[in-house]
């Protein structure tokens, strides 16, 4: 194989771009799961965010407005899930699956007239003073705004869960909803808010694909990234910093296999395209094989809360 034509600096820089969508979606889903809710609709919320962001960015010419619309779109779809699971107390797994199917269909419908259009470019935000550092500069400090936002949101979620009162209540609700209720905390309200946050983050992640990564609109543009985001939450054992590691690992393999394809590696293209997903499966197996690996899950994950008990 010819590694000579792959430039490691470009590779690492594009790794950060490739990882950002998953990172945001996984981070949002982690917060949702920390509150004890399993929302399998990440893929649907991502693609809804992708199409909403694309449409608004094309119509207004402003990528920023596009991202805001993506967050609102993802959140709006997540509220359907919140309505089903928190008000009508349906089971979370089928509700999440339905949300994905609905989101994918909805995005197809909304995006019909936008196939083949080009969105306004998202400009890079080079960090002055740091962007010209050799090697580090191009890798870390010559990206668009959303890459920095995603990194800041990792730090923000980590600090929120660890230090803030609201974060403590959110974890408490996910650990033991009956006890949280007995102490007088609004279990459903906390969960609805967490679900909304997860939806907004998934929407942002989706829009990053349609506005920066690809950038165009085609049906099924998120291509299973939402499912990977779900896997990465488990991989990360529900810890914010490990989401970063997981997302970058997955992004890294994605970028590497693309580069290998471009470099003409003598491995079937299908196998290379499969490799990030294979790696995810392998990592998940290793994690669950470790005795306490999976046990960091919030105790109430996926359980329905009836206020009467």
């Amino acid at each position: 194989m010819d590694f000579g034509s792959i430039n490691p600096v470009v590779l690492l820089a594009s790794l950060m771009v490739a990882s950002t969508p998953i990172l945001m979606a996984a981070l949002g889903e982690m917060v949702v799961e920390k509150s004890g809710v399993l929302n399998l609709g990440v893929e649907g919320m991502m693609i809804t965010g992708a199409v909403c962001g694309f449409i608004v960015a094309v119509e207004t010419g402003s990528p920023t407005l596009g991202f805001i619309a993506a967050a609102i779109g993802g959140m709006a779809l997540s509220m359907v899930f919140a309505l089903l699971t928190q008000v009508f107390l349906t089971t979370q797994v089928p509700a999440g699956l339905a949300l994905t199917l609905m989101g994918v269909g909805l995005a197809s419908l909304l995006g019909q007239n936008y196939q083949g259009l080009k969105p306004p470019p998202v400009s890079d935000l080079n960090i002055p003073g740091l962007d010209h550092l050799p090697v580090i500069g191009p890798i870390l400090f010559q990206h668009d705004m959303m890459v920095y936002v995603s990194l800041l949101s990792i730090a923000g979620v980590w600090a929120f869960l660890k230090y803030s009162r609201a974060g403590l209540i959110l974890r408490a609700v996910g650990e033991n909803h009956s006890a949280a209720h007995a102490l007088g905390y609004p279990v459903r309200m906390v969960r609805v808010m967490a679900i909304g946050f997860g939806g907004a983050m998934a929407g942002l992640g989706g829009a990053y694909i349609s506005l920066v990564r690809v950038p165009q609109w085609t049906d099924g543009i998120t291509a299973g990234y939402g499912w990977i985001a779900l896997a990465i939450v488990v991989f990360a054992s529900w810890k914010a910093w490990r989401i970063l590691i997981g997302a970058y690992l997955f992004g890294g393999i994605t970028v590497l296999q693309l580069n290998l394809q471009a470099a003409g590696a003598k491995v079937p293209v299908e196998l290379l395209s499969m490799s990030p997903f294979l790696a995810t499966i392998v990592v998940l197996v290793v994690i669950s094989a470790r005795r306490h690996g999976a046990s960091n899950a919030p105790a109430m994950l996926g359980r329905i809360f009836h206020a009467s008990h």
Partner: peptide
Amino acid sequence: RASGVAMVFQHFSLFEALNVAENVALG
């Protein structure tokens, strides 16, 4: 609680994965 009524539950209203101080803070 604001009126000065506190309660110790029969089935403990505790959060197993959190530490003692966090559990106290929640109450």
